[in-house]
Structure formats: structure tokens, C-alpha cells
Write a protein that binds this DNA or RNA. Structure first.
Lengths: 317, 317
DNA sequence: TCGTGAATGTAGAGCGCTCTACTCTGTGGA
DNA sequence: TCCACAGAGTAGAGCGCTCTACATTCACGA
């Protein structure tokens, strides 16, 4: 079932069928009907591989998510899907499964596939590597700032977010505020430094404590476990993301501590998790869907304005 | 940067470079080094579009998740990634975003892309549509049973299922329960071990017997044949899948034995075959990750055993 | 009557790879 | 000495589509 078959069936040339399939305006109404009818009748479906090979573009954007388990990414993806749909782009998703090495593999296969552009969300790869990929194909990073003139970044101000969290807790009267760190997770580092800076700013530097972790519930639970064991439970916890907060919350309640009566928690991201019943989690909001939308819009405009990259070699005879 | 360039650089033919890139054994050590060196030096990366077009297979599995927000899917995906990695398959993810229409679009683009197989997880599409897609390319459904002989379904824990099967038979008063093994079939191994474990658990270890076989009616018949000849017919049979059960059933009745009066049979899979009566089946909820693994394993074995689908048209001159 | 140009089609050369069917060595057994 | 054969490599025809350059038709004004 190829173009050729449809052409034969409709009694026209291959080229004409091709034009119809891409609904070019250069086709008469008559021919269009004729071809379309033949195609439908034969159940023809264009072969993307062939199409992409011949046209040297895929109308496909590679989206690299660091962790499928974290709803943060789902929400970013939502925004991206919206924009992609509106612009006729396809999205191919890849999961790095919290590992930089796997992220690298995914990027490599995006490149081999020939995507027109790449969005990396919460990517853990070394900035150098990201930038390098960015020189091969337009790339935008969401949720993690990459300072580079070739890679675009869409991010919320994590330092500021952390500051807001600390300020909120201080307003509630807390002084002993511990930070559960996000390790190598995207945004973890500025959130930590934001925490430290604002603790100092509020004259609470001596209370500053950072418990290592990463962006998982397990880490949140483990951190609380550690605090319990050390009998060093603070009055408030500021976690680097919502998963950590959930994990901490769960562990605290198992230990018989009430949240927020005994311990207050402020998470980060405001993912849908925070909204789940029972859980009263205060969290720093991040407009994820919008971030996704902006990210892809940025990327698409890069595609247009960078005709250098899109340049096709001329055919010489 | 194409094969051709590398070939020129290395001073060999295009074909040789191609062989090296797919590490064929038909290349001498020398040439391999030579080509590899040239490729690395030039930063060559094979073009997947071209490769796939020419070879008519993509080594890519389309994975359709109904909803990225639901962690259930993340867990399924984990299992699938694991198996894909182990078998050199690439995964392309699609999100249906809780809409059947979008699921359809995603499937359509999987087909257009030419994936070698498809796994749908918690798919909302009409079974008919899923089955139809299943006729075009091997397809497995996880988390939703599709009764069809063309679409595979994964939605139970095999060991647990086996346990329930044994328990069921024990409750009926059986002690002499024989297992007809499924050989290398997907899920056969855990079903066997689940059988053995629960026999022991019920204090029936001394009755444990496993008759080798595979997922075919013939094997089921052969197994019964063997039991008859040895005059060692048990009171109950637990078969590793439904085909085995059908084969066994058929052979038993030919021998004048009544099912379930003389011999009870419990099959596995809950295929449409099960609707034929006589056979009581067990289906249990399964841990997601394992379901994902099983789903992809099933799909991959379908790919192997269905060489009909993989058949390539011969070239005529 | 001709030239002009818009509207519509078509031919044919690729895109970058894979695959079949050779060719060309050098071995080793009869 | 000759032939069969395994090992290594190559030529060349595609895979199914797109794209440039060119052909044809027809209406219309000069």
C-alpha cells in the first residue's frame, strides 16, 4: 500500500497523490476528490519514515522527561501537548528515569531519529552536554536553567520560591525550619541556596539545616526517619518538591505527629499531589502547564527564526 | 554526514560500513576498526529514518499511556522500559490524555511511523478498534482485558493466579493436582513456580507433578496422552494456559473421561477459549511493574513467533 | 493570431540506508 | 592439479516519499 498504488488506482501521477496527501493548494478540486476517494478505498496510510526521509523534517519534537512518576512532568507535558497540537507537531516522549545516563541515551535516539527540536524537562545532564545537543538541533530546557546562548530556558525563579516558602513559615512563627534537599533534581540547588539565603536574611542562620535527599517520596520518608531518630524534629519542614513533602508527611503521621499542628510542611511545585484530599500541604506554586506551553512556543519560534538550521541543500543537475 | 562519507573516509564500500554499524560478524577485525575509527572521527550517527525505511522494521515499540498523571501508568512503563532495554528495543511513548479520540490519534501515528509492535496501557478505545489495530501490528493490552485472539492482554499476577488456581482446586477437594507446563511461553515459569509453591503450602508437595509442554493444544493433548499411558491420571489439571487446557480437555474426553466429573481442569489466560465452558479461570490483580514487563515480553515473543507478519517481500530481478 | 501567464500536472532524481546476489581471495581435500 | 567452499567485500537495486524543473492547457488581452 504505497503512494504508487493509490496513484495507479486513481489514474494519476505519484506526485499528484503526494500533493493531495499534504493538501497542497496546487491541486484541482476534482483531482483531490478522485485521489482521496482512491486512498480511502484502499485504506492508504502515508509512511512517515519515507516522508521524513525525503523531506528532511519530521514535524516531531522530542520531549525528555526526567521521571514519569513525578506529576510535575505530567503537567509540564500537558502544556507542551497543547501547543504541539495547535501547531501540527507530534511529540515523542522519552523518560530518563531519574538517570543522567539514560537521559543521554534518549537524547541520542532523538537525534538519530531526526526530531525537529527537543524540550528537556528537569533534565539532570551536564549543562555542557545539553548545550552540545543544542548545537545540533534547537533545544529548550524547562525547570532547569541552562545558561547558554544556544539553549533556551523556561523556568520559574526557584530562589524566589524558596524565599517565599521560608517567609511563609516565619510568618507563622517558625524559627526551626529544616530543608529537605532535592539532590541532583532540577531546581534543587537554587531552592537550597534560596532557603539558606533567606534563613540568613531572617536572622535564622543558626537554625539552618539541610537534610540530603532527592525528588522522591522515599527520600522524604527517610529524611523524617533520620530526624526522628536523631530526636531533632524541627517545627517546620520546607521540602524541595512535593514528592518529598508527601513522603515526609506520611512518615510523620505514622510516627503520630500531626501536620501542621506538630510540624508544618511547605512543599514545592504545587502539583496535583498537593491537592489530594486529606493532605493539607502548603506548597510553592509553579505554573507548570504554562511553563510547558511557553517552552514549546519558544522552541517553535526558534525553528522559524533559525532558518539556518532548517536550510535544505539545493539539488543540482 | 552519511554512510557514504564514512565509506569514502575509510576507503571501503558503503555496504561494508553498513555491516559494521550493525555489527555483523561478516566483517574482519581490521575493517571493523578502520570503519569505526573513521565513523568516530567524523562524528557519524546513523539516520534512523533511512535505516528503518530500508529495513522495514524500526526496533521501536509504541507505548500508549492513557494518562500521564496517573502513577499507575508510570509503573507499567517502568516494567516496559526494563524489558525494552534488555532487548534492544526503543520505546516511543504516547499519551492519550484521558481521551479516546486522542488515543486513536496516537495509535494512528504509531502505525504511520511503522512501530514493530504496540502496548496499550489502560486504553479506553473500543475493543473493536484495538483489535483492528492489532491486526495491523502485534499489540498487547495491559490493565484492560481485550478478549480477542489477535490482541494480547496482561492483567494478572501469574504466581498469584497459579496460587488461586491451586487453592480453588484444593477447596474442591483435590489433592492430586498436576501442572501442565507452558515451557518458554510468557508467564509459564512463574505459573509453574506458583503452582509448586502453593502445593507445598497446602501440604501437597508430594503430589506435585509438572508435565512439560508449551502453549499449544498439541502439547496439552500430548501431556494427557502421557498421563494416560502411564496410568497416572490425577484428579485435577492446572494448565499453564488455555490452549493447553483445551488440548487436554479434548484428549480426556476422547478417552472417555468426563470433565470435571473425572478430572477437573483449570486453565490460564482467560482467552476467548475459556468461554467454551468446562474451564474455570483465575485472573488476579498484578503489580504494575511486573505487568509492564510481562506485557512487553509477550509482545516481543509475538514478534518472534509471528514471522508471518515480519515477512519481507522478496526482491525480483 | 499570438503571446502571456496562471492553473494544474508530471518526470525523475534523490533522501540515507539495507539487502540480495554476486565476485574474489585463499584453503584444503580428492 | 583441480574444485568446492568458507570468508570478506562490493555492486546496485530498491524502501516510499518529496521536490525541483519542466510540460501542458486554457483564458484573455493586444
Amino acid at each position: 500500500m504505497t503512494l504508487e498504488d493509490v496513484a495507479a488506482e486513481a489514474g494519476v501521477s505519484r506526485a499528484l497523490v503526494s500533493l493531495v496527501m499534504r493538501d497542497s493548494p496546487r491541486v484541482s478540486h476534482n483531482s483531490r476528490e478522485l485521489v482521496l476517494e482512491a486512498a480511502t478505498k484502499m485504506g492508504y496510510r502515508p509512511n512517515l519514515m519515507a516522508r521524513n526521509l525525503a523531506s528532511r523534517r519530521t514535524m516531531t519534537i522530542g520531549l525528555l522527561l526526567n521521571d514519569l512518576h513525578n506529576p510535575w512532568f505530567a503537567e509540564i507535558a500537558d502544556g507542551i501537548f497543547t501547543v504541539a497540537d495547535a501547531n501540527g507537531y507530534r511529540i515523542i516522549l522519552g523518560s530518563g528515569r531519574r538517570s543522567a545516563a539514560r537521559e543521554d541515551e534518549v537524547l541520542e535516539s532523538f537525534l538519530a531519529f531526526g526530531v525537529d527540536g527537543i524540550v528537556v524537562a528537569g533534565c539532570r545532564l551536564a549543562p555542557k552536554r545539553i548545550e552540545q545537543v543544542g548545537t545540533e538541533v534547537p533545544l529548550v530546557s524547562v525547570g532547569r536553567a541552562i545558561s547558554s546562548q544556544v539553549v533556551g530556558t523556561v523556568n520559574s525563579d526557584d530562589r524566589m520560591g524558596a524565599r517565599l516558602a521560608v517567609e511563609h513559615l516565619v510568618r507563622l512563627g517558625h524559627r526551626d525550619i529544616v530543608h529537605l534537599d532535592g539532590g541532583r533534581g532540577a531546581g534543587a540547588s537554587p531552592r537550597r541556596s534560596g532557603y539558606l539565603a533567606s534563613m540568613k536574611e531572617f536572622g535564622l542562620a543558626r537554625f539552618s539545616r539541610v537534610v540530603p535527599g532527592d525528588f522522591t517520596e522515599q527520600a522524604g520518608a527517610a529524611a523524617v526517619e533520620q530526624l526522628l531518630r536523631a530526636d531533632a524534629m524541627p517545627t517546620a519542614l520546607f521540602t524541595s518538591n512535593d514528592l518529598l513533602a508527601i513522603g515526609a508527611l506520611d512518615r510523620l503521621e505514622r510516627a503520630g505527629l500531626m501536620v501542621p499542628d506538630d510540624v508544618s510542611i511547605v512543599g514545592y511545585d504545587n502539583t496535583s499531589l498537593a491537592a489530594l484530599g486529606h493532605i493539607s500541604l502548603t506548597t510553592v506554586d509553579q505554573p507548570r502547564e504554562e511553563m510547558g506551553r511557553v517552552a514549546l512556543s519558544t522552541l517553535l519560534s526558534k525553528l522559524d527564526q533559525d532558518p539556518a538550521d532548517r536550510e535544505r541543500p539545493m539539488t543540482h543537475h
